[in-house]
Design a protein around this nucleic acid. Structure first.
Lengths: 197, 197, 197, 197
DNA sequence: AATGAATGAGGCTTCATTCAT
DNA sequence: TATGAATGAAGCCTCATTCAT
């Protein structure tokens, strides 16, 4: 049974990796079996998953669960008192989380339209929670009204996300600005906007 | 010849639309033929395109050509004198251009990794040109150093782009902030950052 | 009309050449059109031939007509008096005729079984006439009985034919014996057999 | 595994038979599947062969292996002492081997030019070895010089081969001479040529 | 007579899935 | 649980042929 679980996980890892690289349709069950150490073409996967699609569902669920379970980082930083430092932490945290989830991002971008049911709210919830979490933090830490905080959050978090979305999804590097400089500039922008509010 | 051209274009339109909706692999030649008014399964497409993939190439080229040919909007606004107004125009322009190119965005996000050769520099060029064009405009209009302008451009343009990337690619609406409010806030943030530079 | 005829012939030549090289099925109408200087894929061939198969029929008929029309070479040599010389002439003639008809040989070998109707007796007649013509000549020139002449003809003419059949049909050179030596040996064999009869 | 091997062989047999009758191109995978007892059109063949062409390769290899492995018949007859008898055996052996290999002959004649790579030396080796084997035997048994033996071998073996090549490849019977008479005459011709050397 | 376009049929191959072992 | 084999469906592409111009 231990083995069973291991196999299941190996399959899931292999599948998600391949899905992210070649897309769901571009990945064959045989490829996944090979990558997972099963006999290619023998259908061994079907002892662990009912369907190719259910593999995708399980893989996505695993990613989303992890993300939804992350302790809200805004809470960690609450009340440190130094807005600049907190913002910088926040920026770095978002960037690194996006790096961790490249696989997920790619799969979502590829499959979210053709397979809406596999997402089924999970993604929507995750994204909205992130934006509103950030907005909430702005309310608490910077004494903004909810409304104003929300607007600033869309712009600010959007800027952060795009810095990773574009390279990850389009295989393109828009500029040569370093991460460090990017974060510094972003923090500055946020601070100026917030302070004068 | 009139017919020929029309058919070719109808095929191209149908194909790109379907590619954007179901992905390249998720779209069959037969579907495209049907959508273009040809007999399904008869291979009529092959009188106009050598390969399914060449269809994708031609379609992408058409989009990219159009975008690369766009008169640089920054030039249109140069010297109007009102930074706020210019920024607002710019923001609206970017958002609307992103709306026009949803099809392109989706295809790029789906295929850029599995079919790198079909992009072949065109996308990279387009993206980098956009960022550096915006940076250049900041230099001219706001008297920023090139370096500073570039950093602000990454953050600013990124924020703008993400406002459309996320809904378009992930079928998700992150917040309920209206476009209008979003633009207003973005302009404000940009102005504050720029003016105090 | 002159042009028409020329085009027809160009088509026929191109077709037979391609059939011999790639087989009937391996040759597409489009290839033939290209080789004949017509627009590829436009179906121009159908103004000259009803069917791809009728093209083959016409081409074969042309070859067979030519061969059946050849003045019987045995008559040319009748009564020269020198058996050796006559045999040598005969051998050279057969070899050279086989060289001229490589195209025909290849097509026959490829298509005679799958398309028996296109031959329809013509080939059988040609072959049998060749063998019996040679036998007849042996009767006349060497005073053999018809029966004996026929047996010798099968062996003798067969030896000659195989010298070209094998390289032409199998793309193989069985030995390094030169044509000249081959003919000399063949004549010698024939002479010894005939003289002691 | 037992089944597997059986299926594989059934496929191979069916394929070679069909190739020989209708040519490689004239035979569809579906036909082969049907003939081998698999579901038509289901692609079951691809569990045993990577490609239609690899089927041809495997089939040819099987034939060639068998032929190349045949104990050299000339050795069997060495030193019997009776040249006539040995020649007659030889002739019958060659004819019967040609009868066994009709399938191979037809496929080679059809495909050797359009698919040279599938033969790749094997056929050339087989043919040349046959001719030189026969020549070698003439050297040993009839005290001929190598050079003379080779010339006689080309003529003699050629005569034998053509007796089967022509009917097999062109579906034509050149004469009504019986096999028995043919062999008798051939032996006689060989003997006369050899003895007086 | 030639061309551009379209069509119907079919061919090779891939693939998710099932089943007996 | 894993494997070898088979299957049905579908996908891309080719091609002979027809038709309007």
């Amino acid at each position: 049974m231990a083995t069973a679980t291991l196999t299941r996980d190996r399959i899931l890892d292999a599948a998600m990796e391949l899905f992210s690289e070649n897309g769901f349709r571009g990945t064959s069950i045989t490829q996944i079996e090979t990558a997972a150490g099963l006999t290619p073409g023998a259908g061994g996967i079907y002892h662990h998953f009912r369907t190719k699609e259910s593999l995708l569902e399980a893989g996505l669920a695993r990613h989303l669960d992890r993300l939804l379970a992350l302790r809200d980082i805004t809470k960690l930083m609450a009340g440190l008192g130094d807005l600049r430092a907190e913002l910088m932490l926040m920026a770095r945290y978002v960037l690194s989380e996006m790096d961790n989830e490249q696989t997920l991002l790619r799969i979502l971008a590829t499959e979210s339209r053709s397979r809406p049911h596999v997402l089924d709210g999970g993604v929507e919830e995750l994204v909205r929670r992130s934006y509103s979490g950030f907005a909430g933090w702005l309310v608490d830490e910077a004494n903004l009204t909810r409304e104003r905080a929300e607007r600033i959050a869309v712009v600010g978090l959007g800027a952060l996300l795009s810095a990773r979305l574009i390279p990850t999804l389009f295989s393109v590097t828009p500029t040569d600005v370093s991460d460090e400089d990017f974060v510094k500039t972003w923090v500055e922008m946020m601070v100026r906007t917030i302070e004068e509010s």
